[in-house]
Write a protein that binds this DNA or RNA. Sequence first.
DNA 1: AATAACGAGATTGTATACGATCTGATATTT
DNA 2: AAATATCAGATCGTATACAATCTCGTTATT
Lengths: 242, 242
Amino acid sequence: MDNHQTKPDSVIARPDADRADGSQRAIRDAIRDAIVDRRLMPGTKLTESDVGALFQVSRTLVRGALQALAHEGLVTVERNRGAFVANPSPEEARQIFATRRIIEPGILAEAACHITPAHIRQLRELLLDEGRLMNERGQSARRAEIKASGDFHLHIAAMTRNTVMQRFMDELIARSSLVISLYGQSTVSSCGHNEHSDIVDAIEAGQIDRAGRLMVHHIHHIEADLDLRVRRANELRDALLP
Amino acid sequence: MDNHQTKPDSVIARPDADRADGSQRAIRDAIRDAIVDRRLMPGTKLTESDVGALFQVSRTLVRGALQALAHEGLVTVERNRGAFVANPSPEEARQIFATRRIIEPGILAEAACHITPAHIRQLRELLLDEGRLMNERGQSARRAEIKASGDFHLHIAAMTRNTVMQRFMDELIARSSLVISLYGQSTVSSCGHNEHSDIVDAIEAGQIDRAGRLMVHHIHHIEADLDLRVRRANELRDALLP
DNA sequence: AATAACGAGATTGTATACGATCTGATATTT
DNA sequence: AAATATCAGATCGTATACAATCTCGTTATT
């Protein structure tokens, strides 16, 4: 059995994550993880009563969680119709990767200022995990691979020690995962790993500009591996109704 | 009388802004505007009942609006204590501007691809308004000036036609306005206008790299004009209590 | 007099209630 | 038979209710 369940917490513990409460946050994180992990297909209706029954809470908390996820772009809410797992359009997918190409090289440069050998070691360990997952087969390994791939980018963002930037990246990586699981062609997916490795090499060698260029190319390759020409079937409703 | 009230809508009408409803959105926008306009001082308690009474709605909608604002970083919510107008620390202020220095040159480059003479004209008009406000005196003119200065950056972001990026910039500009009103020294503030003009000149001349460098310097200057050494008095509570 | 304990009022957290809107199926009409 | 009208069930939007927690002034204690 291939049970690679990644922990529901973020790569770097968020400053407000240690706070008490947790009921609404728990629901939000659970749904987010389910979306990013493809356990909830895009377009799936998220009925408040159902989710509430599942978590044994009232609709009040569920609504809060869904609104928060809508703010992150992982959920779409339509007035008087309810909340659905987001179904990003090809155009939206392009914008997400365009945004990443704009900010990730800058993040790299900023991270380079604060980087230590321990950080490099940390990244290398991540790459090892990624490599292991790549050689495995199965749905679960695929999910874990997508998540691990995103974690690489999040770890670099965390090195900037800039929590504002980190929040943006959290959102971008989560939405990227959603897009990849929507438009990704199951055939190719392993090209990313070597590129990650090359980026770490460049960072370690102090060649920040080169690392930035590699990063831009890498993000380009991720996008190129998608099939953004066709829309998925469950967008039919959106496509036909104005 | 110097009544420069800018419209509560954003620079570019958001795609979801035309949707119906509006009650919760209206509250959120009203509070956001009040915060950015300095009509609500940082640290001010936002009691749900009071806000609800003000808008003649129940606490339910107010809570939703406050949670959304918390997500944007303009409001801080403490469990069992309530919501307060955010009181960004100097460190947070630095992170906000660091983030802007990372992404705004990229935005400029991206915007340059889609730019038209009409856009340039639009920016020049904005600069004229800015100049008018700069020469006026009074609290209201100051507010309008801060807002107009932010609008310049938002307009450039809007030219990218990238709504993901636009949302990030919306948040960054709003938080910047809050920071400026908190830590800004009332003496200097007029230097920004000429820099805006220089940036437009560089864009028009097709010198995108130069425009990007000017933008980075400009953001640096904005940050340099702040006094981030001391914390404001109304942070006393936060400073003393753990 | 300083400090600790207490309690009333205020405020938040969550659940529930109820009217409004949507959805899908059945009945009705042409 | 096709298209429209109608209606019940489900779901959402908002208000209200009640318990848990906090705030802060008052009182009791050392």
